[in-house]
Computed example of a mutant assay.
Amino acid sequence: MLSRKGLIPEDYLLTRLAEDVQQPKYKTKQGKARFVRKNGACNVAHTNIREQGRFLQDVFTTLVDLKWLHTLIIFTMSFLCSWLLFGMIWWLVAFAHGDLDQKGDDFVPCVTDIHSFSSAFLFSIEVQVTIGFGGRMITEECLSAIIILILQNIVGLVINAIMLGCIFMKTAQANRRAETLIFSKHAVISLRNNRLCFMIRIGDLRKSMIISATVRMQVVRRTTTDEGEVVPLDQIDIHMDNPVGTNGIFLVSPLIITHVIDKTSPLYNLSRDDLEQQDIEVIVVLEGVVETTGITTQARTSYVSEEILWGQRFVPTVSEEDGIYAVDYCKFGNTMKVPTPCCSAKELEEAGDSARFSLNDGATSRTSVRRRRKAAVVRKSRMENK
């Protein structure tokens, strides 16, 4: 008997039993790798780094960039190693001075009540964390013990300062604030003011604002220079037309960020068919200062060719209700189809008004066809009644 794996072709996808699927679903083809993922993470792997020592030159940033588990393990091992190291030093001081041997009442030790390595380790912990149980203490007998006490206090303060700084920076990282900055799942290309535009929608879920927010866009694609050099990730800046007409945006409600596709745009020669065939990626970067903390934050996303919808626009999300403006985030990524020419912005500009007339004529012709069909049906029904 054939196995289930042998009966089902690899080109088909298994669907759930609850789905009523009339036709089999095929796997989508493996597309081009993204330079920036939808969540903003950069899809870049750094390999063959020979100068690993450069990371140790900036220890603080390295600790902040590590995962929480690794950071906590490093700090725990730092405390344990420092306690053990100075515990060994205190034991050696007591051994050299003869504190471990039983002496008379007139003998003055360097550190009182140290009889073994365990007691020296406990005294090391008491000194560094300033617990001071009172049973063990340093005396004026040994100058070396005083110097070691000063050194251990300095080392403990340095470890505490680095640990508190790393924990504060990790908890107050700007990427946490970026989780509430959202982008539309798709980008759209349609006409706005008789010009072909590339549009996305951004929004902020928190009431605390992003101060001096700015949006930047780049097109990443594979290009070839006139000399034949292949640039696998050519980053080209594209000009933004912010809704408020300035460099900064007032991100209180969701905004539609528009890029007019003109002669300076890398999308100038791109038509709808070219968009389906070419592998391009549009990276969107939103930067600003968090109002509550004053830390600069950055949110990123990208749109590949399959996520750019031609001939659609975003539906409105803001409405006025009882004297206030209400934002419906259920419609944040919703789009609707609008009449849009399939040609590129270059061809549209060269055609001039004829392109708009052809667009209107197409809509008029479709309406006239519907009217003729409806009239023919009415005439046919009248003839049958006669």
Results as ranks from 00 to 15, higher is better:
Phe314Ser: 03
Ser212Gln: 12
Asp106Cys: 07
Phe75Met: 07
Lys337Asp: 14
Glu276Arg: 15
Arg136Asn: 10
Thr214Ser: 05
Ala41Cys: 07
Leu181Asp: 02
Lys32Asn: 06
Gly203Trp: 03
Arg366Ala: 15
Ile210Glu: 13
Ser365Glu: 10
Ser368Trp: 11
Lys374Asp: 09
Ile138Met: 14
Thr223Lys: 01
Gly228Cys: 05
Lys67Asn: 05
Cys142Met: 03
Val230Trp: 04
Leu122Thr: 14
Thr317Gln: 01
Met169Cys: 07
Glu51Ser: 05
Gly40Lys: 08
Leu359Cys: 08
Asn360Ser: 15
Asp65Glu: 03
Glu19Met: 11
Gln23Met: 10
Ala174Ile: 06
Leu72Arg: 04
Val127Pro: 01
Ser253Glu: 11
Ala45Tyr: 06
Gln23Arg: 09
Phe121Thr: 03
His70Leu: 09
Ser116Phe: 02
Asp279Gly: 02
Cys142Ile: 01
Phe79Thr: 02
Tyr12Arg: 12
Ala363Asn: 08
Leu13His: 00
Thr367Cys: 12
Thr246Gln: 03
Ile238Arg: 02
Met383Tyr: 12
Glu126Ser: 15
Arg16Asp: 07
Leu164Lys: 09
Val231Asn: 10
Met163Thr: 12
Asp101Gln: 06
Met209Asn: 13
Ala41Asn: 13
Asn247Gly: 07
Asp20Cys: 04
Ile236Ala: 03
Trp91Gln: 02
Ala120Glu: 01
Glu10Asn: 07
Phe357Gln: 10
Ser212Thr: 11
Ile131Lys: 10
Leu205Arg: 15
Glu306Leu: 01
Gly333Tyr: 01
Gly333Gln: 05
Leu251Tyr: 02
Thr367Ile: 13
Val220His: 12
Gly135Phe: 05
Val285Pro: 00
Ile256Cys: 08
Val231Tyr: 03
Arg372Leu: 15
Gln57Asn: 03
Cys42Tyr: 12
Gln57Phe: 06
Leu100Ile: 15
Glu384Trp: 09
Glu287Gln: 10
Val220Ile: 15
Val304Glu: 12
Ala345Asn: 06
Lys29Cys: 04
Glu140Lys: 08
Thr264Arg: 10
Glu229Arg: 14
Val93Ile: 13
Asp99Ala: 02
Gly362Cys: 09
Asn43Ile: 04
Asn385Ser: 12
Trp91Cys: 04
Phe183Gln: 02
Met199Phe: 00
Phe357Lys: 08
Gly132Asp: 12
Glu321His: 08
His186Val: 14
Ala18Val: 11
Asp113Pro: 01
Ala376Leu: 13
Glu350Leu: 14
Arg379Leu: 09
Met217Ala: 14
Val219Met: 15
Phe198Thr: 10
Trp83Ile: 04
Gly311Phe: 06
Phe107Cys: 06
Ser124Phe: 09
Phe250Tyr: 09
Pro254His: 07
Phe79Asn: 02
Asp273Gly: 13
Pro24Cys: 03
His259Asn: 14
Thr293Arg: 09
Asn48Cys: 06
Glu141Met: 04
